[in-house]
Each structure stands twice: as C-alpha cells, then as structure tokens.
C-alpha cells in the first residue's frame, strides 16, 4: 500500500496566507463592531420605550400637570398639561392616531416586543460573526504555525484492501467489541485446554504402556477412540467450513475478519457464519454424546469442551490454509501505523 501515493499533503500556509486570514479577521471584526453599534442603538430605543411607557402610565393619574413648555430650542415657559388621557400617537410613516393612555401603553408594549425581537436576531447574528472571526483567527494561527492539510482518497469499493492497509481504526464499536471480547478469549482458552489435554493423553499413554493392564489399555484405547472421533469431527467441521465457504464468498472473508478482530458485521454474513457454527455444534454434540458413553466421567468435561471448540480451531486452520495472503497481509501494517507515519512526515 503506497501511503504517499494515495494521500496529498498541502501546507495550510499555501492555501491561506496568514496575512489574508488576518485581513478576514479584521473584516469580520468590523462587521461585529457595526452590529454592536446597532445593538446599542436598539437598546437605547428599548430603554426610551420603557421610560415612555412609565410616563404614559402616570400621566392620567392627575387631571393636569404643571410643566415647563419648550419654546423653540432656547427657552421654556411655564404651562399646564391638560387632557392627560388623550394622546396623539405616531404609528410610523406619518400616520397618527388619537389614543387613550391605556391604548397608548398597549401600542408601546407591542413596539417594545418588536424591538426585543430585533435585538435577539441581532445577537444571534453577532454570535455567528464572532464564531466566524474565531475560526479565521485559528486559521491564521495554524497557517502561521505551518500546519499541513492531509487529504486521502476514500476507497469504498475495496473493503479488503482498506482492511489490509489498516484503516480499520474507525470501526463500528459494538461489533468490534463483540469480536474482541469473544473470539480471542475463546481461542486462548481453547489453546490452553488443548495443551492440557495433550499432557493428559501423554500421561495416559505412558501409564498404559507401563502397567499394561487391561483396564488401562481399554482406557487408552477409548481415549484413542475419542481422539479419532474428535479428529473425525474436526475433519467434518473443516469440510463443512469449506462447503460453507464454497457456498458464499462473503463468508470466506468474514472468517478471517472475525479472527483478526475486525468487524464488518452485515447480517447475511453473520447468518452464514452462525449457520455454520450451528451445524458444527450439532455434530460436536453428537460426538460428545458418543464419547460420554464410552469415556470416563472425569474426562467428560474435557472431551465436551474440545469438541465444542474444535470449530474454532478448524476455522483458524482453514483460514490459514485458505487465505494465507490475507492473514499475512493484515499483519505488517497495523491500524495505527498509517496515521502515525503521516504525522511523522510533518
């Protein structure tokens, strides 16, 4: 897998020069300043409006008010405000309406609401702009730092290749967990049991040859029979696996994947896999029953577990024999390496 051939590395500096990014930041900040001015203006309107509401509410409390009437821009003269419950309200666009104090307050409150809506929308815009300026700022900083952009083609049509080159990092988590927790443990346990069993068998054979008693001979014979049966069942399992593989190319891929802790859990494959396991368990159960008839009670658990696990062994063997290239191909480039390599380049 040629990593360098697939990905392209562009320095951020060449795409956005720091000066340009700074210019963009300045521009956005200007826009933000404009909005802030507008917001201040609207806030001023709002406070004026609430003050006016307060005044209009109080005016009709008295029949008349002593006030200073402005005369031009220079002078005031004392006067009296009468008709305190009559207002000529400017509705906008040169339209006026005669209103009572109560109605006026209603109008003013509606106006206040409209203003608040405007303030809210302005705030949202400002937030947006601030985020934008932050983004430009970070871009400028990154460009100045000399960050690079890495682009890679995403190969969707060849999942096998992708898997082998080790881009299986973003795996679907649930299935990978399943495989991680299930299969390797099973394999480990299986290997341990097999080792233990080998030891026991050796002991038995030695015992048998040393004592030469009929019972022991029979015992060893039985164990031999058991072995033979196990082997037979294994062979049967193998052939079954092969037939399953022959039946579907997908399952052939599924097998190594499941062993190598890789997910790719589409249902049809799973079903096939499960079907094969089911069949295998069927056969293993049969052989287990046969062996339990002949075998001693102390060894029953072992024989049972061997046979149960034989399909796991079979699958390992079969995958190793059938798809050696896949098994070897997955090893050299582990999932992490690719990313790290490119990080190392920079």
């Amino acid at each position: 897998m040629g990593d360098s051939a697939k990905g392209t590395i562009t320095s951020l500096d060449s795409l956005f020069s720091p000066e340009e990014a700074q210019k963009a930041v300045r521009r956005v900040e200007d826009a933000i300043a404009d909005r802030r001015k507008e917001l201040d203006r609207l806030r001023g309107f709002l406070s004026d409006n609430s003050a006016l509401i307060h005044l209009v509410r109080k005016l009709p409390d008295e029949l008349s008010h002593d006030i200073m009437v402005p005369f031009g821009s220079a002078a005031f003269f004392p006067g009296r405000l009468i008709h305190t419950n009559e207002f000529l309200v400017l509705l906008g666009e040169g339209y006026y309406a005669d209103r009572t104090a109560k109605q006026t307050i209603e109008i003013l409150q509606r106006r206040g609401k409209a203003l608040e809506a405007q303030v809210d929308s302005l705030k949202v815009t400002m937030l947006d702009l601030e985020l934008e300026s932050k983004f430009f700022n970070s871009t400028a900083a990154e460009a100045a730092e000399g960050l690079v952009e890495i682009r890679e083609e995403y190969m969707e049509d060849t999942p096998k290749d992708v898997f082998e080159s080790g881009i299986s990092v973003p795996n679907p988590p649930d299935s990978s967990k399943e495989d991680n927790s299930g299969k390797p443990d099973e394999d480990e346990v299986h290997a341990r049991i097999m080792a233990k069993l080998d030891e026991l068998e050796k002991e038995e054979i030695e015992d048998g040859s040393a004592s030469g008693s009929d019972e022991d001979a029979e015992d060893s014979f039985q164990s031999n029979v058991d072995d033979g049966k196990n082997e037979a069942s294994e062979i049967a399992d193998l052939s079954m696996q092969f037939s399953v593989k022959a039946a579907s190319f997908l399952s052939d891929k599924e097998q190594p994947h499941s062993i190598q802790k890789s997910p790719l859990p589409p249902e049809p494959k799973e079903n096939l896999h499960q079907a094969s396991v089911l069949k295998l368990e069927d056969s293993s159960e049969n052989s287990a029953r046969q062996t339990s008839k002949v075998g001693s009670s102390s060894r029953r658990a072992f024989t049972g577990s061997i046979v149960e696990h034989s399909h796991g062994l079979a699958s390992i063997q079969s995958t190793k024999s059938t798809t050696p290239d896949q098994a070897s191909g997955s090893n050299p480039s582990k999932p992490v390496s690719r990313f790290k390599m490119q990080k190392g380049i920079r």
Binding site: L88, L91, G92, E93, G94, Y95, Y96, A97, D98, R99, I107, R110, R111, A114
Partner: peptide, 24 residues
C-alpha cells in the same frame, strides 16, 4: 421602511372603526 409599514398596518388593524387617524 417595509418593517415600519408592517408595524403601522398591524396597529391600524387593531384600531377601532371610529378612531381618529391623521396623516402628517
């Protein structure tokens, strides 16, 4: 202007039939 006019229209619709309306 559009916003202002819409506000005016809303207020005018809220007014009574016999309300006095003036235009400057």
């Amino acid at each position: 202007q559009l916003g202002e006019n819409e506000l005016v229209l809303k207020e005018l619709e809220l007014l009574n039939e016999n309300a006095n309306v003036y235009k400057l």
